[in-house]
Nucleic acid binder design. Sequence first.
DNA 1: TATCGGCTGGGCAGTCTGTACAGCGATATG
DNA 2: CATATCGCTGTACAGACTGCCCAGCCGATA
Lengths: 159, 159
Amino acid sequence: MAIDHLDGRIIVLLADEPRVGVLEMSRRLGVARGTVQARLDRLQSNGVIRGFGPQVEPAALGYPVTAFATLQIRQGQGPDVRAHLTTVPEVLELLTTTGSGDMLCRLVARSNADLQRVIDRVVGFDGIVRASTAIVMENPVPLRIIPLVEQAARDSEGT
Amino acid sequence: MAIDHLDGRIIVLLADEPRVGVLEMSRRLGVARGTVQARLDRLQSNGVIRGFGPQVEPAALGYPVTAFATLQIRQGQGPDVRAHLTTVPEVLELLTTTGSGDMLCRLVARSNADLQRVIDRVVGFDGIVRASTAIVMENPVPLRIIPLVEQAARDSEGT
DNA sequence: TATCGGCTGGGCAGTCTGTACAGCGATATG
DNA sequence: CATATCGCTGTACAGACTGCCCAGCCGATA
């Protein structure tokens, strides 16, 4: 569950150049191939590395607009709302947060005009009391994990 | 920029089983290997597929708590605040949204108590006027892209 | 001291990748 | 209508990598 320095270097290396194989990694990191292989297996069965799926850019698919919608849910309607939102492709993520029946919802759309259609579809469901939307303008820090990995590696190292 | 049905199937297949090679993909999809290879190259140079980096699970790293902080920024302090937040490993993502100098900030922490430390570090910076935080309780729809890919593939198909 | 887990270095067979080439059908162009 | 272009197919070859195995070494622990 805790990762050491070598684990950290493996993850960082993979993040930088996902196409490198185990052999090349072992060369770069200065350890035996079997070691890298074992570490990778462990990281994956630990769940630290969930997988290596392709990272798709919605903008390149024709969905350059991102928005966050805060939804207020009627008591007890949570499960239904979730099921509803799951069916909307433009809903990329859905989280329940502290607060009275609140959900946070990450949306994409083809344009600002199209966003209206998406929102209508999202909120066009009984059980959603109120929705407020914030359009994302810029993304100064795209979803990242490396700094946290390095932090975690440092932490365990000191132990 | 628009993807067709075959592109969609390639992406879905890759998402399901990232370890399959080009040859195996061509077998499953019933097309020539060169075709899959060419499509993949195109998808990557198009920017539709950004990469295949490892998907790291913060919870498995010891950061099971996720929260969103909405920050109100003093006029003109945006760049400084961004630079500041970039240095905080627990800040996984930062977006600017509509509204008067607002930023949305995705955080993780080792515990609810630790979240306090993270938030203190985040807001302990001149230029942040106000911050309100919502702790994520559940994640009914984890960040996903496949439904959107399938939608995009369908759209272009009809053309 | 004996045991265990992790790392090293080596080897082997099987498979995949990168690259290239010729043929072919559909579409666009003069 | 004739032609150029583009994408897909099927094949080929050399090089490299993966999965797997094993013996040995070393530090930590019981």
